[in-house]
Design a protein around this nucleic acid. Structure first.
Lengths: 217, 217
DNA sequence: CGCGCGCTTGACTAACTTCAAAGATGGTGG
DNA sequence: CCACCATCTTTGAAGTTAGTCAAGCGCGCG
């Protein structure tokens, strides 16, 4: 396949975006399907079009740590450490797949793309920093509340939030067991801070959620 | 002060680096001195020239989480979440201070700078990801071992590693108390995996360290 | 030389994990 | 369409382990 335009000639974000799509392979992944096993030899990065992806580190004893959830519009695999993580679909997912080397070359001569990738990296740092701060809270309820607030910021509409991932994914993200997460949910429900609309849909009392997180209760 | 050259005209990394130095303010910070209090209004980012800086989130109950240690050559404050963290000198530190807006403008038209900043962001994502993986280990000895391995990778010379930060900083980084960290150190010493050369200097059995981390012992 | 602060060690407590089982949920095939 | 089964979630009880409180030690600084 021949490039229809030299990347350096692209003059706008729209043209760059369109060009980028040509450079990408499109993937579809059903829930729990592995997108990348994670290896230092991995030469691809991805952009989530639709759905949610989890980045996971498996430990020798079978436990695991979810290091990140990637939501629509987000890139993952731009940094070495992320490429060494396994990536798995949480919900039915579609993604674009890019060759790292090519992306690097393109961004070197196309400032629009370079800016977009820098933005994606900043977002990754932001998410990771938030995640670390979340794990600083020792009370399970606070951790869960911080997680729900994060999710609300990403996926929420009004006071309603979809919860696309299973309890065990949440547990492995916030550093607790599924049982402890379940108990924390129970107490948040008891306090009317969260209300079940559906299995995968919650209504949140956002202000009360924030109070719970900060005020150590 | 007048710019001697337009940033877009800079033709090499050396020229860019030299130009960048002119754009920076130089700071010196004694141990425990606050570099930035951390606020969403913060408009600066920093590059550590010498020493070590900790990025810290303080919680309402007085506890804190160290989200990152920044070592010589590294930038911090490039992403929003990092600018909202307090930054404090761990050891005697010198830094360069940059105006974010100006840096952004410069990088928009100077590919060398853009690449350097992208590299700094990738490094930040790598560190944060490593940090989250570290906190996934539940055994204090494994967490400490993973921390020491990280430090060895950054500051180590042969099998010797300087430990510039206090126990409490380590504890707040890996999510444990200072007492637990002290006990974990005791056991690593007992097993001859670490040996004290000096108060701030350790000799590590790196391979044994790796085995301890992965093999769950 | 003496004080202060950080580090270490000990005993006890509290809370999360573990182990176990029952309850809900969703998908599938008869 | 409904019953069944596998899986996920919730709930309960017991056990471990890191946190807490407290005291002793050692190094560095004034």
């Amino acid at each position: 396949m021949r490039d229809v335009a030299l990347p350096c000639d692209l003059r706008s974000e729209e043209e760059t975006r369109a060009f980028l799509q040509q450079q990408a392979g499109c993937l579809v992944a059903a829930p729990d399907k592995v997108i990348s096993r994670g290896a230092s030899a991995e030469r691809r990065c991805f952009r989530v079009t639709d759905g949610v992806v989890r980045l996971v580190r498996y430990y020798a004893d079978g436990r695991r740590q979810v290091t990140r959830f990637a939501f629509p519009g987000e890139f993952f695999g731009l940094s070495r450490a992320e490429r060494e993580l396994a990536s798995e679909a949480v919900s039915p997912t579609t993604l674009l797949e890019f060759d790292l080397g090519r992306l690097q070359k393109l961004s070197d001569c196309n400032p629009y793309l370079a800016r977009q990738l820098a933005g994606a990296l900043r977002a990754a740092v932001d998410q990771a920093t938030e995640h670390i701060v979340l794990m600083g809270w020792k009370d399970p309820r606070q951790r869960l509340a911080a997680f729900l607030r994060m999710l609300h910021g990403r996926l929420g509409l009004g006071d309603v939030v979809p919860i696309p991932m299973a309890r065990i994914d949440i547990a492995d993200y916030i550093g607790l067991t599924a049982e402890t997460v379940s108990r924390a949910f129970a107490e948040l429900r008891r306090r009317s801070i969260v209300e079940d609309i559906d299995r995968q849909l919650l209504r949140l009392d956002v202000s009360e959620l924030g109070r719970l997180i900060e005020d150590e209760l």
